[in-house]
Amino acid sequence: MITLGVDVGSLTGKAVVLEDGELLAWEVILTGPDSVETATAVAHAALAKAGLALGDMAAIVSTGYGRIVVPFAQRNVSEISCHAKGANRLVPGVRTILDMGGQDCKAIRCDATGKVTSFVMNDKCAAGAGRSMGIVADLLKVRLEDLGPLALEAPGDGVPVSSTCVVFARSEILSYQREGTAKSEILAGACTALASRVLGLVKRVGLEPEFAITGGIAKNVGVVRRLERALGVEARIPAEPQIVGALGAAIFARELAEKKAKRGDRGAPARRSSLGDGGSS
């Protein structure tokens, strides 16, 4: 049984092809202006790698902020459920997941099957982790991927950077630069600030080992090390932290296909439209 998971995020689109639960192929592309096109392109790219076509899929599930518009998906599942499901597969025994994506951050707790038991989503500003680190990298003219290692060069927590708001942080960073503070110190400060911002999320959801970090920022060792230090646990980073959501979606697709097979393909019960007319649906 082959299934497909498509994750349409704000920065990247991801697709994962699974065969009987085994990873067959995956792909990551940058998100274009049109979510439908992004979804289609990334799905085809991943399928091409496996030499398959949409028609070969037993089921397709979409996730990510563009999940609702993916035309070829039978179901959409929130990225929170998908991240838990995917992390459960990649990091066996995981119970707490911190996902730091481009648009937002979430801390998720799940059970042994990867089902979410509670979650917290950042509700503060547009200060999405990925985006704010992008801004910092731009300001300091370093490549995003060098940011983490550079930050580790500073011995301590770096210079204090406002932890709430990118707008504040921006003016602070500019003035540090004017004062001639070393880049590594500023970067360390920015990583500390980001770590302390997401720390609260993890605390609120309640930390239980195993602890995993997913999403783009998981690749930033500057942030990861500081989080580990503050939480006193080691973070497990899946090999490809970006595709966790799409993988989860593909697993959900498999469950969906199995259920369908059992029911004799009656299809999922149609959700009642909430307002007969005049409503938004």
Partner: peptide, 8 residues
């Protein structure tokens, strides 16, 4: 203090 910005 986390929302305080002396300079501005």
């Amino acid at each position: 203090a986390r929302e305080y910005d002396a300079a501005s």
